[in-house]
Design a protein around this nucleic acid. Sequence first.
DNA 1: ACACTTTTTGCAAGCGATTGCATAAATTTG
DNA 2: CAAATTTATGCAATCGCTTGCAAAAAGTGT
Lengths: 339, 339
Amino acid sequence: MATIKDVAQRAGVSPSTASRALHGSKIISQPTREKVVKAARALNYAPDFNAQNLATKASNTIGVVLPVDHHEIFSNPFFLEMIRGINEVCSQNGSMTTLATGISSDELVHNIDVMIAQGHIRNFILLYSEKNDPVVERLNQFDVHYVVIGKPYHDVNRISYVDNDNVQAGTDAAQYLLDHGHRRICFLCSDLSKMVQGDRMLGYQRVMMQHQLPNIILSERFESHETGVQALHKFFKNYPDVTAFVAVDDMMALKLQQVLHNDAEWKVKQFSLIGFNNSIFSELAHPTLTSIAVFPQRLGEEAAKIAIADRPKDELSTAVIVPHQIIKRHSVHQVKKLL
Amino acid sequence: MATIKDVAQRAGVSPSTASRALHGSKIISQPTREKVVKAARALNYAPDFNAQNLATKASNTIGVVLPVDHHEIFSNPFFLEMIRGINEVCSQNGSMTTLATGISSDELVHNIDVMIAQGHIRNFILLYSEKNDPVVERLNQFDVHYVVIGKPYHDVNRISYVDNDNVQAGTDAAQYLLDHGHRRICFLCSDLSKMVQGDRMLGYQRVMMQHQLPNIILSERFESHETGVQALHKFFKNYPDVTAFVAVDDMMALKLQQVLHNDAEWKVKQFSLIGFNNSIFSELAHPTLTSIAVFPQRLGEEAAKIAIADRPKDELSTAVIVPHQIIKRHSVHQVKKLL
DNA sequence: ACACTTTTTGCAAGCGATTGCATAAATTTG
DNA sequence: CAAATTTATGCAATCGCTTGCAAAAAGTGT
């Protein structure tokens, strides 16, 4: 493996000159620069990551933080697609990525601690955003940058983030159902401490209010089939005339569909259903699921771009909104007008 | 951030002594060791990754290689679960992980090149195994260790790997269908160059031969609904009496189910179906999918353990087989005996 | 108590890069 | 043409840690 000394020697200059030449320093003359570059190329020189980082106290590595393992999260391909996007732009920019995961928030925070302490990692991307997240509290204690995917809970103007316009997306979903004649529409979620769920709900509520229709919220995790069935029985007792659901993501939509399908009475009612994320689930469902696509890979890419750009001292935060798009499939039915 | 000098000073010894004490070197006396450890703890000392790696020419980082992005791969939660397992044991052992992805095998190989050249990464885990993989060819050219998840294509005895007994799993799946009275069973796959698919097929073929039943293989990617329908029409023309399918994984099973469900004639036939991986898909399908669980997280954990253990010079390879388990749900029906 | 082991420690030289500062070369100027 | 600048290079220290080797301390035997 060639070192910078080898390059310098071959180019007939000193290591310091070689280093400067390769970094495009302005004080190196054109001819020497060319010599050095040629030598480097000939030797297939690649700077040693560790040495470089040690000398510069940088790290060229961004830490990608997954949410605390609630098990269901790791069966959600959404995250992998974001990671893919992140990795794509990172490898194009000579950065590396490393993952932080944890089975509890303590463990996760600890893992992040060591990344910061030993690894000199100074840039993070959080793949999620939720209220009172111990991880961001910790990150705030250090002199590190981070960008979150999703809307930050606090300090929206001081934290860089990339997100969809989830409020609008929620509105669009509900509006789509309204357009199909539905009037009693339920918003189904699992955990409102996740910002994304809260925002989508807000959007839903917005249209519903506008049309002076009731907000009907169902928060249910479908831990098991039985609990799901139970919850729905109770739900329909209270809201017998609901005809459609906005589910906070495709997985929730499918879980709902699952229990609806398994009950003869419910099944025949043909509830309408709309999900979010346009994940593979939506294509595989039966009927195929109408869903709002949010382009996770794109989210990842944008987040990585922000994370990589050395932010100047003045600490301006960046916000990127990536557009969403409704993908129409077969889970939404037109309500026949009775009048 | 405390350095080893600080620790040494506080403990009243030299840095070298401190270093050795912290590494449990045998030549340090008990009292000094304790002094050093106490000082380190008091200062909250954590060794600098870069400096350590530079000095030892190690890297404490393992590269996790994802398969080339065929898009569908990134919608498969399977990988994320393996990563989760890997990360878990790595962070417990003070190792980091970094991901290698690529949109083409050239790009992927390139990314691995830079990891090796600049990053001094000497340990990799491949999350897949396929025939004639350019990635392993490249890895073989360097002095690096790697463990593959899945059965290696070449040199099975020289390469460390962790895998399920996929042949047996294939057998179990087919046998389960046989036990339910099926006699014309199709094996559905998408890409036989993946070792995992080949193995499962082998297992299927083994039982079928044993019972002197025909091997019926359908290789179809279901790129679109239309191509799927077309392929199945052709298929049923040739094999009209097939009553059950062993799908090479849950996703394939669901894609099949999807097109079967959408055709009135096929739908009524109630084909039996069994998948692999026991992914979230199988619970969300309707009917719920009987599937063979393979515990991807466990696969990841085992792989990481192997990758972390410094292998001695003699280069003994390790193979770990993690057991599988059939998870019975509702996609397999008993065939009524006509005799 | 002395010479001889054996056990503990510390010195100093790396690892491969970057960078402030001094020096050498090139250029300009009076 | 010598002096004063300006521009280009190289020296050497540094980042934080490890490790071979020599030196110091402690222990042994006679």
